Deep mutational scan, measured.
Amino acid sequence: MGKSNSKLKPEVVEELTRKTYFTEKEVQQWYKGFIKDCPSGQLDAAGFQKIYKQFFPFGDPTKFATFVFNVFDENKDGRIEFSEFIQALSVTSRGTLDEKLRWAFKLYDLDNDGYITRNEMLDIVDAIYQMVGNTVELPEEENTPEKRVDRIFAMMDKNADGKLTLQEFQEGSKADPSIVQALSLYDGLV
């Protein structure tokens, strides 16, 4: 993909415009910024974590950033290329609610087996709590990752089998306004 070129080839721009919710001009602008920050044309896990640390200076986002990195890194080569970056950004910032929920499901399904187990969710929720640090005051019933996961599973795990399917996750998330709101945070920002 033209590693350190400051412009993408027209056919690449066209393809990314088809695969995302961005215009050709927006794709070019994002590429310019991506190459400025990642001259090699790729972003590794350490660089990704560094970006998260800028956004969450009062907590430790390392663990959460690693989980997000793994979802962005579609081809699992340990690096995020621009096409992976822009497609994930498109879903998280401008995707439909169902697209965002499928993306979030992939984030929580750490072993990619098609289910979110209690332990997988606990890993992610714990990482989120570490990331936000003491900057967020949580209600008593959610002031630990374990309590939050218990509440989520009580609401979403309809067949009580200890794991969530994509359908259970989507339906449960849509029924909880706070989850829908959290997924909409990026709307309109890009």
Rank of each mutant, 00 (worst) to 15 (best):
K158F: 08
P145C: 10
Q42W: 04
P10R: 12
D37I: 00
S83G: 05
F85Q: 00
V132L: 05
V91I: 06
E11A: 08
F58A: 03
L89M: 04
V68Y: 04
S90F: 04
D176L: 07
K32L: 04
D109A: 05
E142D: 15
S40N: 12
E120L: 04
Y21D: 02
F22A: 00
P10F: 15
P39A: 12
L185W: 10
D98E: 10
T20R: 00
F56P: 06
Y186M: 00
Y129D: 13
E137V: 05
P10C: 14
Y108N: 09
G33D: 07
D111G: 10
E99H: 01
K53Y: 05
Y31W: 02
S178V: 06
L16M: 08
F34S: 05
S173R: 01
A104D: 09
F169I: 10
F22T: 02
P10A: 04
C38Y: 11
Q54E: 06
E81G: 10
F105E: 15
A182R: 11
W103C: 04
T92Y: 07
D77N: 12
I80Q: 13
L122I: 03
D157C: 02
D37Q: 01
F55G: 00
Q42C: 05
K3A: 15
A65L: 00
D98I: 03
F55E: 01
C38N: 09
Q28Y: 13
E15K: 14
N5K: 14
N143E: 01
Q87E: 01
R18F: 12
G162T: 01
G41E: 12
A127R: 08
Q130L: 09
N75I: 07
I124V: 14
P139W: 15
I124Y: 01
Y21L: 04
R94V: 11
R151G: 06
T144V: 12
A160K: 01
D109E: 08
K25D: 09
F48C: 13
Q167G: 10
E14N: 02
D150Y: 07
G172E: 12
R118I: 08
K7L: 06
M156T: 10
F153H: 01
C38P: 01
G95C: 04
A45L: 13
T96R: 07
Q54S: 02
G133T: 01
I116C: 02
F48P: 08
F64M: 01
Y115Q: 11
L189I: 11
R79V: 04
F48M: 10
K3H: 15
P39E: 10
Y31G: 07
A182I: 00
V132D: 06
V125F: 09
T144Y: 01
V13K: 02
G162R: 08
D187K: 10
F169L: 13
Q181L: 05
G133Q: 14
E137Y: 03
V132W: 02
K100A: 01
P61H: 08
I80R: 13
D98G: 09
G33A: 11
L107M: 06
P139Q: 11
Y108Q: 13
I152L: 06
K9N: 05
T92L: 12
L89S: 01
R79S: 01
K7I: 04
L107V: 08
E140A: 03
E11D: 13
K53A: 06
N70S: 10
F69I: 05
F82C: 15
N143W: 11
E24A: 12
P177I: 04
I51W: 01
P145V: 00
L43Q: 09
D123T: 08
Q29R: 07
A65C: 09
I80W: 07
V149W: 00
F56A: 00
L185D: 07
K32Y: 14
G47A: 01
S90L: 06
T96M: 05
S178M: 14
E84T: 07
L183Q: 13
L110N: 07
I128T: 07
D44V: 03
Q87I: 07
I124H: 01
R148E: 13
D111H: 04
S173V: 01
D113L: 06
K100H: 03
T96F: 05
D73S: 00
A65S: 09
Y21W: 11
V27P: 05
T144P: 14
K158C: 11
F69H: 08
E84I: 00
K174Q: 09
E146H: 04
R94H: 03
Y52N: 12
Q87V: 12
N70T: 01
F56N: 02
L8Y: 10
G2T: 05
T23H: 11
F69E: 07
D150C: 10
L43S: 14
D73L: 13
E24L: 13
I124F: 01
L110W: 05
Y115E: 06
T144F: 02
T17C: 01
S173Q: 04
F64Q: 12
S6I: 03
K106V: 06
E24G: 10
K53T: 08
Y52L: 10
M131I: 09
V180K: 14
L43G: 11
P177K: 12
D161G: 11
L110T: 00
L138A: 02
K25Q: 12
E137N: 05
L8W: 04
D157P: 07
P61N: 04
I128L: 11
L8F: 06
V27I: 12
N70Y: 12
F64V: 10
S40D: 09
L138F: 08
P39D: 03
T20V: 12
E137S: 00
V190G: 06
V125S: 01
L166K: 04
T117G: 00
S40V: 06
K9T: 10
L43A: 01
K147A: 02
A46W: 09
A45T: 06
G2Q: 00
D126Y: 13
D123W: 01
T62H: 14
W103P: 08
R148A: 09
Y129M: 02
T20H: 14
I51R: 05
N119K: 10
L101K: 13
E14S: 08
D176F: 07
F69A: 04
V27W: 15
L107Y: 08
Q167V: 11
K3G: 15
P39I: 00
D77E: 12
F34I: 00
T117S: 06
T17F: 14
N134I: 09
Q181E: 08
P139D: 09
F64Y: 03
W30G: 03
F56C: 05
G114I: 02
G41K: 07
N143P: 05
F64I: 07
P10T: 09
E15C: 11
V125P: 01
V12R: 04
K76C: 12
A175P: 01
F85K: 13
K25Y: 11
D60L: 10
A175I: 07
E11R: 04
E142K: 10
I152Y: 13
Y108G: 01
F48G: 13
I35N: 07
F22Y: 12
R102A: 15
F67G: 06
K7A: 02
Q42A: 10
D111N: 11
D111C: 12
A182G: 08
F82P: 02
